[in-house]
Design a binder for these strands. Structure first.
Lengths: 381, 381
DNA sequence: CATGATGACGTCATTCCC
DNA sequence: GGGAATGACGTCATCATG
């Protein structure tokens, strides 16, 4: 009773031959042969035997099948029939073949997708880590200055509080002084001194060009903004400069003394508008202005109609002038650019066509944290 | 000349029957049988028929196979032989079964993994987006206040410039007023009004506890700082409060009027020191103070010797008092905590052991951007 | 180095189920 | 008819051996 006993023929496989294969390559094994088999008794055991011979489709057959499969994984009856005729294959075989091919395709697609997913997953994972790392790290976004998050907010706190205090104090002193002098002493509007109401940030707007002070001689004010286009994700330094007017002589001193507030106000506004303008694109800038074919210059009408400047508090008789030139500024040089702008002697070199001589009237602010960020100069050009 | 020609016998198959299947269910179909047929000739066409009967292993057989597979997907010869004997299956069949089972296992594992990867991928992707969004969005790091990154720096610019302007203006007015009045009008030192020199940030220090104003009645000033320890990487809100003194009656008005600057000054300093102290650890805080065994309280000697407070401008007769308690504050509640501190009625609930009644004397600042960040209250306790 | 055993893979073929 | 599950081989690459 062992199983196969009898049948000794188990392995059979038989024959093979026939098929249409012309082929050749694979061997078709022939071996065994035989026949049949075995036993029938239930008890018997070996069930095996009958095999149909193995049969491999001929390479040519496969090629054609494959070809059709490529165009149409789901051939209809006709196509299959035709193919079966051409390849001397049973219709069933063709059918099976396509079926098997499809499932194979499927699993292999699955495998491929799996690989892709795996690597993308990896990528996302590390990216995620990187970002998280970046978030917790010092570097607070937009500004290149490495400022601890905590300190940034602290610094802002300080600024705000100090601001409030200053306004308060100023208000008090002004009130006091006004009482004694009988007239206002501050140039700042009371409204601006109201705590909580100052920041014009949300929609402040301004005039790029700022004029001189009413009453004083010939004014040729101009404001030049320069921006290095953002290169990569690196932080870009930014310098804002206001050249008030050709004010020389004795009037200068008092002017500086009295109107610094005005300049500061202008600086804030100009900065705002500068950024906005640099970010705008479409019709605001036109190319091919006479003399500078490749440069973009301000489309004045557009500028005037632009909704970006809403305050329009432009003193009479002032001229707005602006040009924009884009170009990659090597990162290493962005600092140099700023420094150049901070050096009065170099102004004439840089804007030789517009400015003959420049003089720093006063350093309103020299910047913070060792950088020039926030620096403000009062320059007479 | 065809190769096989001869063999017409291909299909053999024949018979079938036998298997040991006890089973039954499936039909074994025998179908074909018989004959053979077909042909091999190419021209011929139907090559079919030989089928071996279908054969499905019996459920019992499968169970056992499965059982063994579970323990050992790669049984060796002996195990297979034994199993084949027990199940009346051919050794080959067992071998095949295991082989097929493995590949099946594999693809099915692959499928599963695929699904997992897919959903994890989804998760990572959205998470990534969320984070990026969070980065570019308002939220600048540590503070909960919504401030655009770009605007943050802009805002800082504005703050700084406005600050400079205010100082300037104040200075001017003061000078002016002083001339007329013959004595200083501002409480702020001239030095502090010097641009570029204000920010005491780097190493400012302060007294945690702030006293009342010299001359006025009984003072019991105390400053209470509360910090929720950073939970996770989430931003934590922070509120700084100064409770100046029990000042009631008519003196109050003038006090508020005159000394708001002082309070502001104190607030800035207190904030600084609060943060520093909270970040310090070692000997500055001691546990097990009488009555509060589990809390940490200030080691006063250490505090005095600490290098962190260098200004020491502590008015005479004032008392410093502090305690630190750590605990996780549920994120959802950090906002609530701040709001609680902003509500005078809740002060007595919170610090019942120290404060009987609190009154908001004035909202110096109500915070910015809809949040309480930067808010400053003047509270009488 | 040739050889045999073995496992992973790919194919062909069936049957069942929808 | 199509797809899933399964049985049954054949082939290939690999590894330990004689």
């Amino acid at each position: 009773m062992f199983a196969d006993g009898a049948g000794g023929a188990m392995a059979r496989d038989a024959e093979a031959q026939n098929d249409s294969r012309s082929g050749s390559d694979h061997l078709d094994a022939i071996s065994g042969v035989g026949d049949d088999d075995d036993d029938a008794e239930p008890s018997g055991s070996n069930p095996r035997k009958r095999k149909k011979r193995y049969h491999r489709h001929t390479p040519q057959q496969i090629q054609e099948l494959e070809a059709l499969f490529k165009e149409c994984p789901h051939p209809d009856e006709k196509q299959r029939a035709e193919l079966s005729k051409r390849l001397s294959l049973d219709a069933r075989q063709v059918k099976f073949w396509f079926q098997n091919r499809r499932t194979q395709m499927k699993t292999q697609l699955e495998r491929h997708e799996n690989a892709l997913l795996k690597q993308e997953n990896e990528k996302l994972r590390t990216e995620n880590l990187t970002i998280r790392e970046a978030m917790r790290t010092p570097m607070c976004g937009g500004c290149g200055s490495p400022a601890m998050l905590g300190e940034v907010s602290l610094e802002e706190q300080h600024l705000r509080i100090e601001n409030a205090r200053l306004k308060d104090e100023l208000n008090r002193v002004c009130t006091l002084a006004t009482k004694f002098l009988g007239k206002p002493v501050s140039l700042l509007s009371p409204l601006q001194l109201q705590p909580h109401l100052s920041m014009p940030l949300p929609n402040s707007s301004l005039e790029l060009a700022v004029g001189g002070i009413g009453g004083i001689g010939s004014m040729q004010p101009s404001m030049h903004g320069m921006m290095s286009e953002y290169a990569g994700g690196a932080s870009s330094s930014m310098g804002t400069v206001i050249t008030p007017a050709r004010a020389t002589g004795p009037a200068l001193a008092s002017m500086v003394d009295i109107d610094r507030s005005v300049f500061l106000e202008l600086a804030i506004s100009a900065m705002d508008e500068l950024v906005k303008m640099a970010q705008t694109d479409d019709p605001l800038w036109v190319t091919g202005s006479p003399g500078f074919p490749d440069k973009e210059s301000l489309n004045f009408e557009e500028y005037l109609h632009s909704s970006q400047h809403c305050i329009g508090m432009k003193p009479v008789g002032f001229v707005s002038e602006a040009s924009r030139e884009s170009g990659l500024v090597i990162i290493d040089n962005s600092v140099a650019l700023v420094e150049t702008l901070m050096d009065e002697r170099r102004w004439s070199d840089m804007f030789s066509c517009m400015i003959a001589k420049a003089t720093i009237l006063e350093e309103v602010s020299n910047g913070i944290g060792g950088s020039r960020n926030g620096a403000l100069l009062l320059v007479s050009a």
